[in-house]
C-alpha cells in the first residue's frame, strides 16, 4: 500500500492527470483525453453548424460539474441547483432592468455570483441538519418558491416573458463558443483538482458514511460548507453567463425544476462524482437534445426521446457512461486497479 502511494507521488510531478483517478492514467486514457480536448477546441473548424449548440453545452458543463462537486460527491442530492444559477441570472437581469440598463457587466457579474454564493450557503445550512430525502425536498421546494416569486413579482421580473435588457456577449457563434469554453474548461479543471485533492476525498467519504468521517475527527460541517461554496461560485458564473448568452432571462430556461433535473441527469449519465463524467455528459445530452433529436424528432418530441435515453442509461449503467468507458480503457492498457 505505502509502496503504491509513493509511486503515485513520484509520478504526480510529471503526470498530473495520472492522479485524476487515483491511478496512473494509461496511454489509452491519456490519448482519449487528448483527442477529446483537441476535438472540443476545434469544433468551429470542423463543424461550424454545431458551434452554437456546443457553446450552449459549455454552459451546461459548468452547471453539471458544479452540481457534481457537492451532490455527486457527498450524495446530498440537490434538486435545486437551477435556483442558484437562476438567481444569478435574475440578479443580472433585475439590475439591468430595474436599476440601470447600462450597468457594466463588470459590476453585474460579480454581484450575481455573490448572490449565488449566499443562496448556496442558504442551501448548506439545512444540509447540516437534514439528511437524504429531506435535503432534496428542501432544495426542490426552493425552486418552486423562486418560480412562484417570479410570477408574483412580475412587475419587476416581467413574469413569463422575462427580462430582455441583458446584453448578449456576442452575436458571433465562434466567439461565443470560445467565450463559454474557456470558463467551462477552467471551472472543470479547478473542480477536478479539488475533487482529487484531500477535500474531494473527504466529500466523497461523507457521501459513503458521514458518521465514520466524523468519528475520524474531521469536521464534516466545515467540509460541507466549503463544498457548497465550491459549487455555488461556478453556478453563479454559469447562471450569469447564460443570461448573457440568451440576453433574455425568463423562468422556463433559467429556473424551473426541469432545469435542475437536467443538471442531475447530465451528471448521472456521465458518472456522478467524477467531474470529467459530467463534462462528457453535458456535451452528449445537450448535443442529443438540441442537435440530433431536434433534427429528427422536432422541438417537442425530442424531450420524450431525451428523457427515455436518460432513463435507460440510469438503469443500465448507474455508475455513468464515462466511468464505464474509463474502466474499459484501463483494462485495455492492462491495468486492474478498479
Amino acid at each position: 500500500m505505502s509502496e503504491s502511494v509513493t509511486a503515485v507521488e513520484e509520478e504526480s510531478s510529471e503526470n498530473v492527470l495520472g492522479r485524476v483517478f487515483n491511478a496512473e492514467a494509461n496511454r489509452y486514457q491519456m490519448g482519449f483525453l487528448a483527442v477529446a480536448f483537441l476535438g472540443l477546441i476545434t469544433v468551429p473548424m470542423w463543424n461550424p453548424g454545431w458551434t452554437y449548440v456546443f457553446a450552449f453545452a459549455n454552459i451546461w458543463v459548468i452547471f453539471a460539474v458544479s452540481w457534481d462537486i457537492i451532490s455527486g460527491h457527498t450524495n446530498y442530492i440537490s434538486f435545486g441547483h437551477s435556483f442558484l444559477s437562476g438567481l444569478a441570472a435574475y440578479t443580472t437581469a433585475l439590475l439591468t432592468f430595474n436599476v440601470d440598463p447600462n450597468m457594466s457587466i463588470y459590476i453585474t457579474f460579480p454581484v450575481s455570483v455573490a448572490v449565488a454564493v449566499v443562496a448556496g450557503l442558504a442551501f448548506a445550512l439545512p444540509s447540516l441538519r437534514l439528511s437524504g430525502p429531506y435535503f432534496s425536498l428542501l432544495t426542490f421546494v426552493s425552486v418552486l418558491i423562486a418560480t412562484k416569486a417570479v410570477y408574483i413579482f412580475s412587475g419587476y421580473t416581467n413574469g413569463e416573458m422575462g427580462i430582455s435588457t441583458v446584453s448578449v456577449l456576442t452575436f458571433d457563434n465562434t466567439e461565443m463558443f470560445y467565450l463559454t469554453l474557456v470558463p467551462a474548461l477552467l471551472i472543470a479543471a479547478i473542480l477536478l483538482y479539488i475533487s482529487r485533492s484531500n477535500v474531494g476525498l473527504v466529500l466523497k467519504a461523507i457521501g459513503q458514511n458521514e458518521r465514520a468521517v466524523e468519528s475520524a475527527g474531521l469536521d464534516t460541517t466545515r467540509f460541507k460548507l466549503w463544498g457548497f461554496i465550491y459549487s455555488a461560485i461556478p453556478m453563479g458564473v454559469g447562471g450569469a453567463l447564460l443570461a448573457h448568452f440568451f440576453g433574455n432571462v425568463e423562468p422556463i430556461a433559467f429556473l424551473i425544476v426541469d432545469r435542475s433535473i437536467e443538471m442531475i441527469a447530465i451528471a448521472a449519465v456521465g458518472g456522478m462524482g467524477t467531474i470529467l463524467g459530467p463534462v462528457g455528459g453535458a456535451y452528449l445530452l445537450i448535443f442529443l437534445r438540441d442537435e440530433l433529436f431536434r433534427a429528427f424528432l422536432g422541438p417537442n418530441a425530442r424531450w420524450v426521446a431525451l428523457w427515455s435515453v436518460v432513463l435507460i442509461l440510469l438503469v443500465t449503467s448507474p455508475d455513468g457512461l464515462f466511468t464505464r468507458f474509463w474502466r474499459l480503457l484501463d483494462r485495455l492498457g492492462g491495468g486492474g486497479s478498479e
Binding site: N75, I261, A265, A268, L311, L314, V315
Partner: peptide
Amino acid sequence: VITFLATVVVAL
C-alpha cells in the same frame, strides 16, 4: 439515488 432520479425522469 438511482430510484430517485429514475422516478423523476419517468415523471418528465
